[in-house]
Design a binder for these strands. Structure first.
Length: 413
DNA sequence: TGTCCACTGGAAGGGAGGGCTT
DNA sequence: AAGCCCTCCCTTCCAGTGGACA
């Protein structure tokens, strides 16, 4: 009998060897339809090569409009220009505030980037803020150059930790003698500057650049360029790229989404043993992406949020509508009781509900019932069957497999 | 028009878990 | 070991609120 892998090895892949081009993390040599933005930013940052602090820049745009790609692209170009023309030290430090989301960790990352051979490494927690600030200033100043700090998703940082950190980075320039720091902030939210102190705002917004969403034609160009490199000739049916672009354009012109869609369509076709990628594969890919997103979001939820989400789903399965916070809390307490977990307080649960709302797992609208109070009305935003299945994969919750919620206000389990 | 319900969401603070300094 | 400081998760307290109802 032949080896089980033979049948797959024999078959020629639909991808070329450069499949990684179809991952959003890949940074291409050119970014179509972003030439203006690139030139604008380059024009501003070029002063760094002369050893002077460039203006701070704030970049706005929805997800998948190429903000991060452009900024990384500029970083690569800047560093290679510096090797040829640079009259002084230039460093380009990219931080994603999704993970680096406190004043402490931002300063820690900057400081440790310039750590000398004999210096003490700044620990990820433990030091008082002013100490970490002074240490970071010392390291950066000693290095003697122009630092450009890119704060991707800076709106998240500010929402979570306030604008103190931005003030601190700006303030570094007042206390350093040799080095300079410029900020490039990237935000999904246009109105995030409302959260900023007026002084911080004006200094941070010296330059403001808005990335508008790609339209379907632009997405097509992007996809075509990448498909040419990553997918073998003649594999894509004519309409495939158009459809991927159209779907992504509907979802506010998200290029990342378009690229994922194309790659997964080809993967599905390949697994099917098809010779060509068809519209049908794209539709299957669209479903798969949606489900994967949901599954990932649910799996990473904390235990109590999972219980709450299960409560929302069970409630809907039980045929109940207009589920309120108070009712959900009762259901939740019963579920907790069933698996011997002590329930959180009402207040905390209210926050967890809001969190899941912003994750898009549930819809929670504040609604007033007049005399009967004001509360959130909650419904699941995900398919019940799949959602439940994923939640019950958690071993702590296995005992809730048969839990039910009646459509009357009375509960039975 | 005022009342009152069932919350919402801000503020403050506790304490566990991480780390450093002395 | 004791004393700090940090973040994260959570509780406690409470002022504020939209709109049906009397």
């Amino acid at each position: 009998m032949e080896n089980v892998f033979e049948q797959y090895i024999r078959k020629q892949s639909l991808f070329t060897e450069s499949r990684d081009v179809l991952y959003p993390s890949y940074l291409p040599d050119s970014l179509p339809h972003r030439e203006n933005e690139i030139n604008r930013i380059a024009e501003i940052l070029v002063t760094a090569l002369y050893g002077e602090k460039p203006s701070n820049i704030l970049i706005f745009g929805k997800t998948g409009t190429g903000k991060t790609a452009v900024v990384r692209y500029i970083g690569r170009e800047l560093m290679s220009a510096q090797k040829v023309h640079g009259k002084s030290n230039v460093e380009y430090l990219y931080l994603n505030c999704d993970t680096v989301d406190t004043s402490y960790s931002v300063l820690q990352n900057i400081g440790n980037h310039f750590i000398g051979e004999w210096d003490k490494k700044i620990p990820f927690t433990g030091w008082p803020i002013d100490k970490i600030f002074n240490t970071t200033v010392e390291y950066v100043d000693r290095w003697n150059g122009v630092l450009i700090v890119v704060l991707d998703e800076v709106d998240k940082l500010v929402a979570k930790s306030g604008d103190d950190i931005l003030y601190k980075i700006l303030h570094m320039n007042d206390v350093m003698e040799n080095s300079r720091v410029g900020i490039v902030g990237i935000s999904n939210e246009l109105n995030f500057t409302d959260l900023l102190d007026a002084r911080v705002k004006s200094r941070l917004m010296e330059e403001k650049i808005i990335f508008s969403p790609y339209n379907a034609f632009q997405l097509e160009d992007i996809l075509r360029e990448r498909a040419e490199i990553a997918i073998r000739d003649g594999v894509l049916e004519d309409e495939v790229i158009k459809l991927c672009a159209a779907i992504a354009a509907q979802e506010h012109g998200d290029a990342r989404r378009a690229i994922d869609l194309l790659r997964i369509s080809v993967e599905i076709a390949e697994r099917d043993g098809a010779e060509k990628v068809t519209e049908q594969h794209v539709k299957m890919a669209k479903n798969k992406i949606e489900l994967d997103c949901i599954a990932e979001a649910i799996k990473t939820l904390p235990l109590h949020s999972k219980i709450l989400l299960l409560g929302v789903i069970l409630s809907e399965e039980g045929g109940r509508d207009n589920l309120t916070t108070g009712e959900l809390y009762d259901i939740y307490r019963n579920l907790c009781h069933k698996i011997s977990v002590s329930p959180l307080t009402h207040r905390r649960v209210s926050d967890l509900i809001s969190d899941m709302d912003s994750l898009g797992l549930i819809n929670a609208r504040v609604r007033s019932f007049g005399r009967y109070g004001r509360t959130k009305v909650i419904e699941p935003a995900i398919p019940a069957y799949e959602g439940k299945k994923i939640i019950l994969e958690d071993e702590f919750l296995a005992d809730l497999k048969n839990a039910r919620v009646a459509n009357q206000k009375k509960l039975f389990f």
